[in-house]
Amino acid sequence: MTKPLISIEALARRYPARGGGETTIFENVWLPIQKGEFVCLIGHSGCGKTTILNVLAGLDQPSGGAVIVDGREISGPSLDRAVIFQGHSLLPWMTVIGNIAFAVTSRHPEWGREKVRAHCQKYIDVVHLTGSEHKKPAELSGGMKQRVGIARALAIEPKMLLMDEPFSALDALTRGSLQDEVRRICTETEQTVFMITHDIDEAMLLADKIVLMTNGPGAKIAEIVENTLPKDRRPATMHKHANYYALRNHLLDFLVTRSKNFAAEIEGKPYDPRKPPVVRPGAKPVGVETLADDGSPRSAAIA
């Protein structure tokens, strides 16, 4: 395997506990992310998902461990890592192109006005906002604002795009279309992405790998799930693929049951936090014998 672009190594975050001592939110977290991978992190509230993202962004400091990006340990924010938050975080007095240009000139202060404008226009076109260049945020819908945020992040050409539940505040139709758009953009640009979400179907649509975190405090990576759906999956049709329900049921079972029982599950079994189990849930072939509810044999067919 090639050397990862991002390497999370022995990461831990602890906070002072009331009455003395410390509360460990997560510890000994190891995760490599290859260039061009789309990785989603799933887990219940309190397992430290946003804290991990903030450490990756350089907005928070770990209590232990390190994050290595392209061979260098991160120590603070950098234009190599762009963040898209739940809110669009646009400057309300600036236009669409002005918001994007503000980020681009921070990245390339030596560029002239025309080069900045042309570069911004490229990413405005990518997110399908052509014609809205001179509108201000108050004139845009929620989905359009979030597209501006995505264009702004992509325009600085970061090594890594960090996304903190960027679609959670949108209505279902806008969310679905924007998820599809993000997948298209990240595939076309080969963008490396780390995203946190509570939405199983969102993770199945977008991610190449889905990282499952146990419940906090003391959360850890339980396993890494490789997405077994086709690369060209679409929201409207991915449920028709044979592996859809096997993958979805595996993720759902983890969130409902295994996330809180993981410590008991691995008791007495080898578990190496540096190499969490990698699983590839898929449909069982037709003719594989399983047991019915009454214990009698039956043949399993692909759903």
Results as ranks from 00 to 15, higher is better:
residue 213 M to I: 04
residue 213 M to Q: 10
residue 213 M to G: 05
residue 213 M to P: 01
residue 214 T to R: 08
residue 214 T to C: 12
residue 214 T to Q: 03
residue 214 T to H: 07
residue 214 T to M: 03
residue 214 T to F: 07
residue 214 T to K: 04
residue 215 N to P: 13
residue 215 N to D: 08
residue 216 G to K: 05
residue 216 G to I: 01
residue 216 G to A: 02
residue 216 G to Y: 00
residue 216 G to C: 01
residue 216 G to P: 10
residue 217 P to N: 01
residue 217 P to L: 06
residue 218 G to V: 06
residue 218 G to W: 09
residue 218 G to A: 04
residue 219 A to T: 02
residue 220 K to T: 09
residue 220 K to P: 00
residue 220 K to Q: 06
residue 220 K to N: 11
residue 221 I to C: 11
residue 221 I to T: 02
residue 221 I to D: 06
residue 221 I to M: 09
residue 222 A to C: 01
residue 222 A to W: 04
residue 222 A to D: 10
residue 222 A to N: 08
residue 222 A to F: 07
residue 223 E to P: 03
residue 223 E to C: 12
residue 223 E to M: 14
residue 224 I to P: 14
residue 224 I to G: 13
residue 225 V to D: 12
residue 225 V to Q: 09
residue 225 V to E: 01
residue 226 E to F: 15
residue 226 E to P: 14
residue 226 E to Q: 11
residue 226 E to C: 13
residue 226 E to W: 09
residue 226 E to D: 07
residue 227 N to P: 05
residue 227 N to R: 12
residue 227 N to Q: 11
residue 227 N to K: 06
residue 227 N to A: 11
residue 228 T to L: 02
residue 228 T to Q: 14
residue 229 L to E: 05
residue 229 L to V: 02
residue 229 L to R: 03
residue 230 P to E: 00
residue 230 P to S: 03
residue 230 P to H: 06
residue 230 P to Q: 01
residue 230 P to W: 05
residue 230 P to V: 02
residue 230 P to K: 06
residue 230 P to A: 10
residue 231 K to N: 11
residue 231 K to H: 11
residue 231 K to L: 01
residue 232 D to I: 05
residue 232 D to W: 11
residue 232 D to K: 08
residue 233 R to W: 01
residue 233 R to E: 06
residue 233 R to I: 12
residue 233 R to K: 14
residue 233 R to Q: 02
residue 233 R to F: 02
residue 233 R to S: 11
residue 233 R to C: 09
residue 234 R to T: 15
residue 234 R to F: 09
residue 235 P to W: 09
residue 235 P to E: 10
residue 236 A to D: 09
residue 236 A to N: 10
residue 237 T to Y: 01
residue 237 T to E: 07
residue 237 T to W: 07
residue 237 T to N: 09
residue 237 T to M: 07
residue 237 T to R: 03
residue 238 M to V: 09
residue 238 M to Y: 00
residue 238 M to E: 00
residue 238 M to H: 03
residue 239 H to Y: 08
residue 239 H to C: 07
residue 239 H to N: 10
residue 239 H to M: 03
residue 239 H to T: 05
residue 240 K to T: 10
residue 240 K to I: 13
residue 240 K to C: 10
residue 240 K to D: 07
residue 240 K to N: 10
residue 241 H to A: 02
residue 241 H to Q: 13
residue 241 H to D: 09
residue 241 H to E: 14
residue 241 H to K: 04
residue 242 A to E: 15
residue 242 A to N: 07
residue 242 A to S: 13
residue 242 A to C: 12
residue 242 A to W: 01
residue 243 N to P: 06
residue 244 Y to P: 03
residue 244 Y to W: 06
residue 244 Y to A: 09
residue 244 Y to M: 10
residue 245 Y to P: 00
residue 245 Y to R: 15
residue 246 A to F: 05
residue 246 A to D: 02
residue 246 A to R: 04
residue 247 L to N: 00
residue 248 R to H: 15
residue 248 R to A: 09
residue 249 N to R: 14
residue 249 N to G: 15
residue 249 N to L: 12
residue 249 N to Y: 11
residue 250 H to L: 00
residue 251 L to W: 04
residue 251 L to N: 15
residue 251 L to T: 12
residue 251 L to C: 15
residue 252 L to V: 13
residue 252 L to Y: 03
